[in-house]
């Protein structure tokens, strides 16, 4: 088994109103930052996952995203995965 570090990035789906992102955009404007386009706010969830292979780790995290970590009605997710150096063979 190897230990994998997964980062799940959950973001509001395109086109969906993101009032939090809008509020931050206004704040950036009032600070004088011109030329800032759309601001979207999501969340990053980091997980440690033990699995026999990279594929298995990815499949498990993907399942977690579909069941719990993201709401498919309103959110998209992206998984980044890295294997810990020196994992037990």
């Amino acid at each position: 088994m190897s230990l994998f570090h997964a980062t799940v990035r959950v973001t509001p789906r395109p086109g969906l109103l993101d009032p939090e992102g809008k509020a931050i955009h206004h704040a950036l404007e009032s600070l004088g930052y011109d030329g800032v386009g759309e601001v979207r706010v999501g969340k990053a969830i980091t997980l440690e996952v033990e699995a026999a292979s990279r594929d298995e780790a990815l499949a498990r995290v993907d399942e977690m995203c579909r069941k719990l970590l993201a709401n498919p009605v309103t959110e998209d997710y992206r998984i980044e995965l890295s294997e810990e150096e020196g994992g037990t063979p």
């Binding site: 109103l17 009032p19 939090e20 009605v73 309103t74």
Partner: peptide, 15 residues
């Protein structure tokens, strides 16, 4: 969230 009703409830538009 349980799928018994469709859709989702987002942050109020006025925050």
């Amino acid at each position: 969230e349980a799928g018994l009703l469709p859709g989702a409830l987002l942050r109020n538009n006025g925050l």
